[in-house]
Design a protein around this nucleic acid. Sequence first.
DNA 1: GCAAAAGTGTTACTTATACACCCATGG
DNA 2: CCATGGGTGTATAAGTAACACTTTTGC
Lengths: 249, 249
Amino acid sequence: MPPKKTILRDAAPYLPELTLDCVILSFHEDRLKVLLLRWKGTQEWSLPGGPIQRNEAVDAAANRILKERTGLDDIFLQQFHVFGEVERYNREEIRHKLKHLIDPDKWYERAVSVGYYALVDYTKVTPTPDAYTEQCAWWDVQHTPALLFDHNHIIHVARQALRTQLSWQPIGYNLLPEQFTLPELQRLYEAILGKTLDPRNFQRKMLSLGILERLAERRRGGAHKSPYLYRFKKEQYELKLKEGNLFFT
Amino acid sequence: MPPKKTILRDAAPYLPELTLDCVILSFHEDRLKVLLLRWKGTQEWSLPGGPIQRNEAVDAAANRILKERTGLDDIFLQQFHVFGEVERYNREEIRHKLKHLIDPDKWYERAVSVGYYALVDYTKVTPTPDAYTEQCAWWDVQHTPALLFDHNHIIHVARQALRTQLSWQPIGYNLLPEQFTLPELQRLYEAILGKTLDPRNFQRKMLSLGILERLAERRRGGAHKSPYLYRFKKEQYELKLKEGNLFFT
DNA sequence: GCAAAAGTGTTACTTATACACCCATGG
DNA sequence: CCATGGGTGTATAAGTAACACTTTTGC
């Protein structure tokens, strides 16, 4: 048992010098999207994030924020970097831009932030602003505005981390709806890797992992041959992920 | 400029809820070693680590601790995980074991820790205890004692991270003396990967990276053929590392 | 019928793996 | 002379990369 005594900083409901920021990514109309928040009474955008409660694990706080902003639970969420510089961004500029919203006694101190990224199904998300913001929306990750804090930098680092992780774990499982076509999956990989892939080689490699199941139906609607629908075979996917022999290079 | 006002927590010279822990690894007599500290008046060991100063970047704090405990500067040091659980370890047990050393008003609060690992040259290190400890020594990483806090767990996570990173960046550069033999490098890889490698395949792969230079001299001393000495070609090594095409699988 | 995108196989090349003998040295 | 560990090559298998045409669909 921890001691029962109360000291001053125990009174604060949050860990005062630690925050987290979530780079919540999805895939829609062949583009990677990132979820951003617009602060009340401004045209300023930032990543979702915030402080960590004193009795809350950091991972739990990331899940809480994800849940609050998207409505989604139980999602792939990955710590990718700690942003621990003393002057991560111009605090005076933030003070100026957000002065109508935040108590200067509580904010603008130096804070270290833990960066997380999440991969979510665009169709399942209900973007929801928080107490400080009035709009929550998807932005094309290639065309975000200039963000508050060091959030453009955080997105950049997240995308690098994601590219690295791609070799170790196929990611479509989290980013796509339950049913999808191989060309859709290929375009997702192309969006993340930032280069085009050969469809024959892509299909051969992806199918050889043994984690996809082809369904009887096809997707209809375009003026072209109808592609087959696939879905992930959950058990095989989880099994291979655990064994660590899911590579895609 | 940040505001000039002083609020209570500004008085603390450290960020109170954030610490870091360093898994400092080296290689000696064919074994991976980890640097541990023994706390004053006890037989209890822990990793080097500690709080972060209010005006100090987290990476800078890790470098400071590395420097203080080893005498080394400018070393490969890598953030690998944030340990953010609420109950990372039994605080009451720590309170009991270290009660003669630490002020109960300041310690035993929940703290989040950033884990770093460093790879250092065993021969260049002068193990140096800190203010709370009376011994600083290398332990075989396979045979550490039961450590304070959650430090056995932290070492375990560090080793996993190291194994993953091994594929992306050859690591002998940091762990070996300037001159070394290929069998020595191979034994280092074997120690990290936990399996034996074929010497012909190992040498071919390692040399094909183009970052090693064979010297004229050989290492003498054993009752066997004298192995060649090698050293890293610093420029090529750094260049390839930056380009990201240094793989070892 | 025509434009758009999907589906599909083969070959060359590169990389990884498996495997065994001789050589230099110190004692 | 002998025990120890270092140095070295080749053959096979696996994986990766490059490449183009036919099919289906909606309009």
